[in-house]
């Protein structure tokens, strides 16, 4: 290899090295683990057999868990879009002086530990929590609503955590749109709503797409929120991985679940890439 050809690889070597050590190697190990044998005595011994995989594929429960996880992630993403897009639009377009301050405030909660922020929802949604206290105080209900430890509280917690990511992604892409494009559309005969649909929305899709992907992947992979805010019947895939590896010490099966999760999310990203790859997004909308 000539020097000129070697140069990019040389420059990339720190990234390649750290990525292979910290990302690729562990994944390879996990994949290898998934073929190990768990003995009746509870020992994990090296082997190459498909028993763990067979167990996974034959048990509907895990598919149900995967489905329920993706469903929750999808709802979370949808709620984030509905709440996040208008907020981002306001931040990008309103004539406000303290845009920077508002953006800063949005990320301020990130200075507090994620676990503490999640647990504080218990005080808000719980039986004696803030919401129920207010509702009972003004006489809307006598019995406290069951707001906590169900899918609602899980989605609530996930939305709360992920919303800023959605907002910032959409904000950045809205902010990058030349305002003259909207003016041009208006002068050519568009109402404000039509110009939004024709120009602003399509041109902000890359940000909306990136924010949605991020939301979905983070939500599907989250573990703390469902565990703290979910109920006994909450079925969340990352939680099952924790159960298998930490509680049951069944590393081979935990590895199977991890690989399934990785592949499932990988598929989502691949599908996203197929339809939303940044360079294509403009063109796909021109049709």
């Amino acid at each position: 290899m000539s020097r000129a050809l070697a140069r990019p690889y040389l420059l990339l070597s720190p990234a390649i090295l750290s990525l292979s050590l910290l990302m690729v190697a562990p994944v390879v190990f996990v994949l290898a683990y998934s073929f190990w044998l768990r003995t009746a005595e509870g020992l994990d011994v090296p082997a190459f057999q498909f028993g763990n995989w067979a167990n996974f594929f034959s048990d509907e429960f895990y598919w149900l868990a995967l489905y329920s996880t993706f469903k929750t992630a999808l709802i979370t993403t949808a709620v984030c879009i509905v709440l996040g897009y208008p907020t981002a639009y306001f931040l990008a377009r309103a004539e406000i002086k303290n845009r920077g301050l508002l953006l800063f405030l949005m990320f301020l909660p990130f200075w507090v530990s994620y676990i503490i922020r999640t647990m504080s929802w218990i005080n808000v949604l719980g039986k004696n929590g803030f919401v129920n206290a207010v509702l009972m105080g003004i006489g809307i209900t006598d019995e406290p609503f069951k707001l906590l430890y169900n899918d609602f509280s899980v989605i609530m917690g996930l939305v709360y955590f992920q919303l800023p990511y959605m907002i910032i992604n959409v904000y950045v892409s809205l902010d990058g749109i030349d305002r003259n494009l909207e003016s041009a559309a208006r002068v050519l005969g568009c109402t404000p709503w039509q110009s939004f649909r024709e120009v602003t929305l399509p041109l902000s899709l890359p940000g909306l797409g990136a924010g949605s992907l991020l939301c979905f992947v983070l939500a599907a992979g989250s573990y703390v929120t469902p565990r703290l805010l979910g109920g006994t019947d909450t079925l969340f895939f990352p939680d099952l991985i924790y159960e298998a590896i930490i509680s049951q010490l069944d590393w081979p099966f935990g590895a199977v679940l991890s690989v399934v999760m990785l592949v499932a999310l990988g598929l989502v990203i691949a599908v996203y890439n197929r339809f939303m790859s940044l360079s294509d997004v403009y063109r796909s909308f021109a049709r």
Binding site: D178, N180, A184, R186, Q194
Partner: peptide, 19 residues
Amino acid sequence: PIHQRNLGMVFQNYALFPH
């Protein structure tokens, strides 16, 4: 309103719709 004025406008940076 703008969209009912029937004017043509050309902008310094062209403002063609990139998509």
